[in-house]
Design a binder for these strands. Sequence first.
DNA 1: GGCGAGTACGGTACTGAGTACCAATCCTTT
DNA 2: AAAGGATTGGTACTCAGTACCGTACTCGCC
Lengths: 219, 219
Amino acid sequence: MSTVPASARDRLVAAAFDLFDVRGFDETTVDDIARAAGVGRTTFFRHFGSKEAVIFPEHDELLARIAARLDAGDADSRDSAVTEAARLVLRYYVGEGDRARIRYRLISSVPVLKTREIASIRQYQSLFARALSGWTADDPDAVLRAELLASAIVTAHNHVLRRWLRGEVDDPEDAFGHAMSVVLEPVTQAGGETTVVVVRTGAAPDQVAAAVQRALRSS
Amino acid sequence: MSTVPASARDRLVAAAFDLFDVRGFDETTVDDIARAAGVGRTTFFRHFGSKEAVIFPEHDELLARIAARLDAGDADSRDSAVTEAARLVLRYYVGEGDRARIRYRLISSVPVLKTREIASIRQYQSLFARALSGWTADDPDAVLRAELLASAIVTAHNHVLRRWLRGEVDDPEDAFGHAMSVVLEPVTQAGGETTVVVVRTGAAPDQVAAAVQRALRSS
DNA sequence: GGCGAGTACGGTACTGAGTACCAATCCTTT
DNA sequence: AAAGGATTGGTACTCAGTACCGTACTCGCC
């Protein structure tokens, strides 16, 4: 009855978080984790490609969920599509609770885990960039703008998530909404703001405006 | 006379790039590199912390240069400071020539190297974020805005660098200037303020536009 | 029930990265 | 010439990750 019915994979994850938390990442061997989970060392590597990967057990599935959400969007629903897709990630980590906090502590102190996390984040960013790149069109800088927006979304997400993990924010969903408004404010208002150049020459005003516009596009 | 006078460190880097390029990263052991450089295996690990690190030999020094350039800037010279700091990185890699191209091929095909590169990029980003965070003040979202701008700068840099590495761009400096104008265009227009430029000279409109363009390139 | 097929598991053996330690050599300083 | 610090090479060790093999369990199917 004390034998947990959880799958070997789940037991490995639980044992890994436990051991990493109390003993430290470097001081814990894969053998230790496998033994604590009551399985062989081979089984560990069958479920996780590396010792670090066990810290991000659902990463691949999350990636797939994000990709699916982005695929469901289109150019018109762009802002809400990316916001909701990023919110999926935020909700997942917030829903993890203590496990997310332990991961945060580990990542903050173990360089190899920080590297791994950064690489994971980059995968999300690539998903967003690809989706955005497919939506924005007929702009010579479309790819660059897509990458910029993708990096901004991911940065906003991580900013809010880290603040929540540090206990600096109570309602992460709300904070993320605000952060996204900061991200999208220049995008949505683009072209709405006016830069006026007053020239006292005899040139026609619209000629001057056209020149400034060209300059701002700086092509 | 065929014995190169280069330092052991330089010989290790050259041997590593050679072997990785022709034989592949995974198929090359540290022993191979050390033997090709005419030194012991221990010496390799004395100069580079890991097998991957030899691909980014000057990374730490570059980081220090960026930090120094950012430290030399202040809130007023913000745009030019970050632009010039990023340009230092761009110039370094462009100046490397073939070595940068070999690295790009390796990174594109070897996952562990891609991870390493992403982590390196993140270090630059952190430098920018910290500098920007110190400059922008009295804004409740100051940290977020600093992180957003830092990620945008790094994204713009990488966008241009990768395009140059793929041969899609001839003049990377010029392309980067343009990319930075795209990055800074929403920032400079932030707040919906209207910038009025009154020119009392008899200059032609396109001369004025040219002056604005130069100012936007901020270098 | 029996039975092959596919699957999850455990064990063993191996390669190679990274670390610790020790001895030798070189180079500087006095 | 002697002492002392720094760079190097060699050896031995731990452990992550891979390959391979034999075994147990399960699920249809006859």
